[in-house]
């Protein structure tokens, strides 16, 4: 017997299980959070007498590399879900492990980028551009860390659920994936906005 209704099977009226509705509600609030900061960026930029081109301050090849890393991690994430659907637990572990690894690569590259800025005495207080750059990218990095924690749990102790309740575990990985793809999606907009314009 299920402890709560609709944690595995879909509700007949909405066609969704609880966590699916929950993650989309959460992501809706996330859209408004990042949307508020994007609108702040637009307002600051249009109101500034001078605004530097992103590529004159930021390293475009490094930003592009991190974009590819995050896209690759999204692919391995969706592969891990597909592996569970195929009943291949080993393949799931490999792909989710790769997702976590790529997330760490993203953070390390970001830390190197931040370090290079600090070495040149470029801080959030230095200019409006750097203030919004650090705010947006740091908030995004916090979301990457959040994803690592969640995916790390499902790769480690949380994976025990696969033995007892496989369907529920597949749902959990799908939900974790939807969150992770959102983190990727935000970066897809952040990269051109900050680095290329």
């Amino acid at each position: 017997m299920e402890l709560m209704p609709y944690i595995v099977k879909e509700r007949p009226d909405t066609g969704l299980f609880n966590a699916k509705l929950g993650i989309w509600l959460f992501l809706s609030s996330e859209v408004m959070l990042f949307g508020a900061l994007f609108s702040a960026y637009v307002l600051l930029r249009t109101g500034a007498p001078h605004w530097p081109h992103g590529s004159s301050i930021l390293n475009v090849p490094i930003g592009a590399f991190n974009t590819v890393v995050l896209i690759a991690s999204s692919v391995t994430m969706v592969f891990s879900w597909a592996a569970l659907k195929e009943n291949k637990f080993g393949k799931f572990k490999l792909n989710l492990g790769l997702t976590i690894l790529l997330a760490f690569v993203f953070l390390i590259v970001k830390a190197i980028e931040y370090g290079a800025k600090f070495e040149h005495h470029l801080y959030p207080k230095t200019s409006t551009f750097l203030a919004i750059y650090f705010t947006l990218t740091a908030l995004h990095a916090l979301h990457v860390i959040g994803g690592i924690v969640v995916n790390g749990y499902f790769w480690g102790p949380g994976a025990r659920m696969w033995q007892a309740e496989p369907e529920r575990f597949v749902n959990r990985i799908e939900i974790a994936g939807i969150y992770w793809h959102f983190v990727d999606l935000v970066w897809i907009f952040l990269f051109p906005t900050l680095y290329l314009l």
Binding site: S74, M77, G177, H181, L185, I188, F189, P192, T193
Partner: peptide, 17 residues
């Protein structure tokens, strides 16, 4: 830039999500 980002975002949302 934003048009290309929209296409990329749509691909992620439609297929991965």
């Amino acid at each position: 830039a934003l048009s290309i980002a929209m296409v990329k975002g749509s691909l992620v949302a439609c297929f991965f999500m």
